[in-house]
Simulated scan of single mutants.
Amino acid sequence: MNKITVLVVDDDPEIRDVIQIFLSNEGYHVLEAENGMQALEIFQTSPVQLIILDVMMPHMDGIRACLKIRETSKIPIIMLSAKEEDIDKITGLTTGADDYVTKPFSIMELVTRVKAQLRRQSYSVKEPEEDVISVGDLIIDKARHQVTVKGKKVSLTPLEFSILDLMASHRGYVFSVDKIYELVWKETASFSDNTVVVHIRNLREKIEENPREPQYVKTVWGVGYKIEK
């Protein structure tokens, strides 16, 4: 059986070495790059199932590399950064990253998130009875993994699509942030960050005419989010 290949991109060789050791011990095949340009070259020539991508690197940083990868692929990407400000987290996830880890990080936490992303990627979800879900002018075509608003196609990341699909398939149900994380990321919500909130914000920017007054993804203050019946 072929091993899952993870591409680790960081200009710090010590960080790459530590990640490589722990991922190899978990049975993964690890490729390494020290900047975004090298990462793109490896990605274009080698089969890779997940990328761990540092933000701050010479020649080409992680943000630009992530944007280039997202032009052709929906591969899971976990961003690394030494900056903890929320704006950096939002910037990283807006590029299409699936998760975000700040430095210094627990290597076991990173391994856990790698497993969660790969599990989500390979998870076979039972299709609900509705193959096409309509919520006003919002149309979700599950078979084609396609979303349109007023007839215009909207490009969503896999996680954004999964969040939208989850709520649209259970209209009227209020999902807490923790429940969304558990159902979409397939992992217990044990990390104190705002990853789900950022994804909801990005989703609204793409599907709502006015994200500040959302028509589709509603906030139930103090509880969570829902799509109304």
Score class of each variant (00 low, 15 high):
Ile227Arg: 07
Asp88Tyr: 15
Ile19Glu: 08
Thr72Tyr: 08
Ile139Ala: 02
Ala65Asp: 02
Pro214Val: 10
Asp88Asn: 15
Gly222Leu: 03
Pro58Met: 07
Leu67Gln: 15
Ile133His: 03
Glu129Cys: 02
Asn35Gln: 04
Glu85Val: 08
Ile4Thr: 15
Gln44Met: 10
Lys74Phe: 01
Leu40Ser: 06
Lys229Arg: 13
Glu26Thr: 01
Ile107Phe: 13
Gln49Ile: 00
Met57Val: 08
Val48Asp: 01
Ser122Arg: 12
Asp10Gly: 06
Trp185Ala: 05
Arg171Gln: 15
Lys103Trp: 07
Val197Ser: 14
Ser190Arg: 11
Leu31Ser: 08
Leu7Ser: 04
Val6Leu: 07
Val55Thr: 09
Lys153Val: 13
Thr112Tyr: 07
Asp11Cys: 07
Ser169Pro: 03
Tyr100Asp: 05
Lys218Tyr: 01
Pro104Glu: 07
Thr95Cys: 13
Lys126Gln: 11
Ser190Tyr: 04
Gly224Arg: 05
Phe22Ser: 09
Asp137Lys: 14
Glu160Tyr: 00
Gln49Asn: 11
Arg201Tyr: 13
Val48Gln: 01
His145Ile: 02
Glu228Cys: 00
Glu14Ser: 12
Gly222Cys: 03
Pro128Val: 03
Pro13Leu: 06
Thr45Gln: 12
Ala39Lys: 09
Phe22Leu: 13
Lys152His: 07
Leu203Gly: 04
Val135Cys: 12
Ile180Met: 06
Ile180Arg: 08
Glu187Pro: 00
Leu80Ala: 02
Thr188Gln: 13
Lys179Trp: 01
Lys226Met: 13
Ile139Phe: 09
Glu127Asn: 11
Lys83Asn: 15
Asp88Glu: 13
Asp12Glu: 15
Arg201Gly: 05
Ala97Ser: 13
Leu118Cys: 09
Ile77His: 04
Asn194Trp: 00
His199Arg: 07
Pro13Ser: 11
Gln20Glu: 14
Gly62Ile: 02
Val132Arg: 05
Glu14Asn: 12
His145Tyr: 05
Asp98Cys: 02
Ile51Pro: 04
Gly151Leu: 10
Pro104Ala: 09
Leu40Thr: 02
Phe105Ile: 04
Ser106Phe: 04
Val114Cys: 12
Leu67Cys: 04
Ile87Asp: 14
Glu32Gln: 14
Gly96Leu: 02
Ser190Met: 10
Asp54Arg: 05
Gly96Ser: 01
Ala39Ser: 13
Ile51Phe: 02
Glu85Ala: 13
Ile133Gly: 06
Val149Asn: 06
Phe161Thr: 00
Ile140His: 09
Val220Leu: 09
Val154Asp: 00
His170Met: 01
Met108Tyr: 12
Leu23Lys: 06
Ser124Glu: 11
Val114Leu: 08
Arg113Asp: 08
Lys89Asp: 00
Ile139Tyr: 03
Pro13Tyr: 06
Thr95Lys: 07
Leu166Ser: 04
Ser192Leu: 05
Tyr225Gly: 03
Val135Arg: 11
Asp137Pro: 01
Cys66Asn: 09
Ile90Asn: 02
Ile87Gln: 11
Tyr181Ile: 00
Val18Asp: 10
Asp178Met: 03
